[in-house]
Structures are given as C-alpha cells and as structure tokens.
C-alpha cells in the first residue's frame, strides 16, 4: 500500500494509539480495516481505508496483521513531513515493512516491525438511525473536551434545534459551552450543523472523548451522532479514502 502523503497514515496511527495500543489490521483487496476496543471495553474504534484511496494498492490474499500501534507510531515519527510511505507484508513473513521516501527521492528509509499474535474480537456494529447528527470543526470539539475536563470527569451533551450544549460539573463547580447552529454557511469547515429528529441528553466520560480528539488532525470537521441509550459515534473522515469512527458507551444511572 503506497501513500504519496505518508503523513495521512501517521495521523491515523496517532489518532488510535492512545485508545488502543495494539490492534489487528484486516487487509483485503478492498483495502485495510481495523476494529478494536480499548482495554476497559468502554470504547470501540473502527477504521476503514479503501484501496482506491492509496496511490497504489495490492493485496493478493486476505491477511490479519497484529500490529503494535505504539511501535508503529514511533517508527512513523521518523518520517519527514512530505515523505511518501509504502507498507508491505511479504507472504509468510512475520514482519511488516515500512518504507519512507523523501519528496525529491534523495532519502530512503526502511523499517521492519515484528507482527504480533493478538486475540481479536469482532463486534457487529448495527446501522443506526441516530436522533441527532452534529457536525462541527474538529478543533472546536478538541477545545470543548479540554475545557470541560477542567470541571469534571463527565460531560453532558444536550441538543436542541438551536444548538448543542456541553456541560460538566465537579468539586470546583460547573461549566458549560453552548454552540449555536451556523445559519449562514460560508466556510463549510467552520460550520456547526445540527440535524435533529429528537432532542437528546447523554453523559459521556471526557477522558475518552479527549482520546478520540487525537484523530482530529485527520479532518477539519468531526461528526457526532447521538441517540438515547446508544453509544455515541464520533467520526473523522480520512480524505477520499475512508474514516475513523469511535464509539463510546454512555454513562448510565446507577
């Protein structure tokens, strides 16, 4: 699999590695997918990178590759900003080859990472018709998670037709941030758009939402989909090739 802009792949890994330290990559002719839960089984991530999004892609037989995302992140940090990236696994090999090429082809770096034997569990994620779908700048969402974490461990997300409100309370007191729906969309990237069938009020752990925000550099906009008694879906699109979707179980009355 070859990417002209290897930084896209580095951003994917940075977006996942804190939530899941290691994961099984499923490779097929259609592309690369990954599904993994965090160690406490509170959140789940689902990654799709379609073959047509790569500069070139070939997969002769389906493969499951157990990879340490922490190690891969370290290797990808050595990559230059404008480097292209090729990922290769040879038949019957117990390692993955990560090759980087500088833009003017005067530097070539190759790394081999040992594959891991991982127990992987695959959950079925149903198609959900969410009560609310919010789109907002991903930088804004990161900021809100950071700001709410000052006040408490949990954030209550409430939606109305007018907007969306995030609130948190704790020993210090409480705080809230309300975003109003953008009425005059000039720049789509900066817009706050709320599609609502029913109002929702759901509580989530800020710590996990903040981890999801590690994937924010992938896309200028984040999608939050919410329904009562259903895990939140937080989606970052990967330009032209797929998405990273995070699912987070809500906090419920004890």
């Amino acid at each position: 699999a070859r990417l002209l802009h290897g930084s896209i792949f580095a951003k994917v890994i940075e977006g996942l590695r804190e939530l899941v330290n290691e994961a099984t990559w499923e490779c097929s002719g259609n592309g690369i997918t990954l599904q993994a839960m965090d160690s406490s089984h509170v959140a789940l991530v689902s990654l799709v990178m379609r073959s047509e999004g790569f500069e070139s892609y070939r997969c002769d037989r389906n493969m499951s590759l157990g990879i340490s995302l922490v190690s891969m992140s370290k290797v990808l940090k050595t990559m230059g900003k404008d480097d292209s990236l090729t990922i290769r696994v040879n038949d019957d090999s117990d390692s993955i080859i990560i090759a980087m090429e500088s833009q003017n082809q005067d530097k070539f770096a190759d790394y081999e990472l040992r594959l891991m034997d991982l127990d992987s569990e695959h959950l079925g994620i149903p198609d959900t018709d969410y009560s609310c779908a919010i789109k907002m700048p991903s930088s804004e969402f990161s900021r809100i998670c950071r700001d709410m974490s000052i006040m408490g461990d949990s954030v209550l997300i409430c939606t109305t037709k007018e907007g969306v409100k995030f609130s948190a309370k704790g020993d210090l007191g409480q705080g809230s941030i309300r975003l109003v729906q953008t009425t005059n969309i000039e720049k789509e990237e900066e817009a706050v758009i709320i599609e609502m069938k029913e109002a929702v009020a759901l509580t989530f752990a800020v710590r996990y939402l903040s981890m999801f925000c590690k994937a924010a550099p992938l896309s200028p906009q984040v999608g939050l989909s919410l329904s009562e008694d259903t895990p939140l879906m937080c989606e970052f699109k990967i330009a032209e090739m797929g998405h990273v979707r995070f699912y987070l179980a809500p906090k419920i009355e004890d």
Partner: peptide, 14 residues
Amino acid sequence: GKRQDNIRAYFENF
C-alpha cells in the same frame, strides 16, 4: 450517580 457502561453490551449481540 452514574456509572460507565460497557460497549460490548450494545454491540456484541448484533
């Protein structure tokens, strides 16, 4: 009080 639910509770049966 609220407690953190498990993601498996929502997805594993589908």
